[in-house]
Design a protein around this nucleic acid. Structure first.
Ligand code: FES
Ligand code: FES
Lengths: 162, 162
DNA sequence: GAATTAAGGATATATCATATCCGAAAACCG
DNA sequence: CGGTTTTCGGATATGATATATCCTTAATTC
């Protein structure tokens, strides 16, 4: 069970977009160059964010992506689910129904106890991600990333933002 | 990100093994038949449990598997990790290092804030699984599974336990 | 000695992640 | 208007992993 690398890409891209001045857009090309990623494939991740209404786009030169909501209104789970899907990590194939001792046509009233526990763990994972806002991440990064790198990065970004 | 179906198989098999009388073994063949699973492939999952020292085996006719510890000493996480591996679900490929604004040879002092949050969520998932013991599962099942099915299942099992 | 079993290696297949390419439509710019 | 730049979606190729089967070996029972 391994998350796709798109998750890392999407989260980092959102962190950059969160630092854009109001109304400006940043292109896939710039985001790919900044993170050293394949432009075409990163584009798929950004499309997922777009379909989830987390980012807005505009076409043409000076086009690209910007956040659709303020960073304090976006949490980690939304971003992760946008690229990874909302499906639970554990899927029950109902193997208990294969028990030869069951009466013919017996129907379970509840989901299996095993599945319920696995889903509870899944929910704990989602809860943790739901509690972290994109603005929290930006706050942490601005403290931890050395000031000169932080500043020059956004200079680099602004030079390319349409 | 999806767990393998072996996880469901392993958990259900452990629940059955937990109900075996002390010292008895149950074969792969019986476990596969009881759950309607491919014997050869289920065998791989049981081998994983064996390598994790969760179950013990013996060869020959009347051989098979039994728990290596009492059900109250085995938690869900041990079983899940035995078949699924202990690797974290999020892997950081350190894309921040590709930032062209970084000074040559700059070295990060901490793991990336993004990765730390994803790992925290992963840990919440593991914590939930760690807190549920195999004996808890057996307790729940014995309450929820209709008494006649529960009883006839273990009669079925005992008939095949070596 | 014959039958049964777990263990492990080799292999085949299906599904999914990763990656690239192309054409269409929209926006900007001269 | 025409050329350029951009997102978007579809098609396709490749690699890794999950799923599944087969076969050999060694241990155990009878
Ligand atoms: S039958 Fe699917 S988890 Fe129990
Ligand atoms: S560089 Fe990997 S999560 Fe930030």
């Amino acid at each position: 069970m391994i998350l796709k690398s798109q998750v890392e890409w999407a989260l980092h891209c959102c962190a950059i977009l969160a630092g854009l001045p109001k109304g400006r857009y940043l292109s896939t090309k710039a985001l790919a160059e900044l993170h050293g990623l394949p432009k075409e494939y990163l584009s798929k991740a950004l499309q997922s964010l777009s379909q989830a209404s987390l980012v807005e786009t505009t076409l043409g030169p000076s086009g690209g992506y910007r956040l659709a909501k303020p960073p304090s209104d976006i949490n980690f789970l939304e971003i992760v689910e946008a690229v990874e899907g909302k499906a639970r990590s554990f899927t029950c194939t109902n193997i208990r129904a294969n028990n030869p001792c069951r009466p013919e046509g017996y129907c379970d009233s509840k989901p299996c106890a095993v599945a319920r526990i696995m889903w509870e763990a899944d929910e704990a994972w989602r809860d943790t991600l739901r509690r972290v806002r994109l603005s929290d991440l930006v706050g942490t990064l601005s403290e931890e990333v050395p000031a000169d790198i932080w500043r020059s990065t956004f200079e680099w970004v602004l030079k390319r933002a349409g």
